[in-house]
Each structure stands twice: as C-alpha cells, then as structure tokens.
C-alpha cells in the first residue's frame, strides 16, 4: 500500500483537503474495508457508512497532528475502519439482531473516544443552521474553507467584485454562527 504517493504528501494533502490525494486514498482503501466488512457479516451499505466515518476520523486526526508524519495513512485508515466495524459488531445495537457467537475473531487496535455531550449539541445546532443556510452561502463557504480557493478566484466564479465576495463570505459565516447560537439557545 501507498507506493504511488509519498506518505508525507498524503499527510499534506489531507491537511490542505487536496481532492486528488483524498480521492486516491478513498479509492485505494475502500475496497479493502468493503471486503473486510462483507466477510464479517456486513453489506455494501454498512461498509460505506463505516468507511466514511473512518475517513472523517482519519482526516481529523491528521489535521489535529495526532498522526506521525511517517505513518502509513492507508494502513491507519484501514485500521480505524476495521475497529469501527468491530465496535459495531460488539455494540448492543448489533447484538439485538445477531447472536454474539457469530462475531469473528477481531482485534481492537485503536479506540475512538466518544465526543462529549456539549460538543454533540454544538454540532447538532451547527448542522441545523447549515441546513437553513442558502445554497449560495454553502457554495461560497465550501470554496473558501474546504477548497481553499482565493477570494479572487471565488469572485470570478461568482461573477462579482472581490470586495463583494469577501463581504458575502463574512455575512454567510456570521449567519451560520448566529443561527447556530439561536438554535442552541432555543434548545431546538
């Protein structure tokens, strides 16, 4: 694994949300995770869910400097996904459906800590606020914060002056922030 891309490039790519790097890792590791999940009482749908959650966890850990720069990211991502599936198989939710004897001999290598309740509430409020945000705001925020496009490039895409794009970005961000605060304080 990981012969076509240098590990450092992969880590840099994850930090900068490089779409080529993210895509390559996704397409290389997913089939392996899918194979594992299907061999262990899962299906395509579950494989996709578990893999995407693992991908997010891996991406966050890289961004938060929790991963050594020489780590093999494909192996790391595969391990997170495998552990998440193992956790699921051992969870009460799964055991309700299947006898515990059916669970294969899997080893837990890394435990993911659950996010605390406050963080979950904040996230839920942000999620609700995001859904209320207009499509144009979402696109603008995506271009700036995820795709890391410059304001000049964004203004060209939006066909507006750079200052106007900048103001719009500010307003969109403030709207998302205040909406989420409102939702949180209203306990919606």
């Amino acid at each position: 694994m990981g012969t076509s891309l240098q590990q450092k490039n992969i880590i840099d790519g994850f930090r900068k949300n490089d779409p080529e790097i993210l895509k390559e890792i996704y397409l290389v590791v997913y089939p392996k995770v899918r194979g594992f999940v299907i061999k262990n009482n899962g299906d395509d749908h579950r494989a996709k869910d578990i893999f995407q959650e693992a991908f997010i966890a891996c991406w966050k850990n890289i961004k938060n400097d929790k991963v050594m720069t020489n780590s093999n990211i494909e192996a790391y991502l595969y391990t997170i996904a495998k552990n998440k599936w193992t956790d699921y198989l051992r969870s009460a939710d799964y055991k309700k459906k299947v006898s515990a004897n059916d669970i294969g001999p899997l080893t837990v290598v890394e435990e993911e800590k659950n996010e605390d309740e406050t963080l979950e509430n904040k996230k839920k409020a942000l999620q609700d606020a995001w859904e209320q945000l207009g499509e144009n705001c979402k696109n603008l925020l995506n271009m700036f914060y995820f795709e890391r496009k410059s304001m000049e490039d964004i203004s060209k895409v939006m066909n507006v002056a750079s200052t106007s794009a900048r103001n719009q970005k500010y307003r969109c961000m403030e709207k998302l922030r205040t909406l989420s605060l409102e939702i949180k304080s209203n306990g919606k």
Binding site: L22, K60, K123, F146
Partner: peptide, 15 residues
C-alpha cells in the same frame, strides 16, 4: 469549530 464543521460538511459531500 465552525471552520472545522464547514470543512467536514464539504468532505462528506466530496466522499
């Protein structure tokens, strides 16, 4: 936190 949330939303779409 909001910055990270937007990035995560975008990554989910990308995936």
């Amino acid at each position: 936190e909001i910055f990270g949330f937007i990035e995560e939303q975008s990554l989910r779409n990308k995936m």
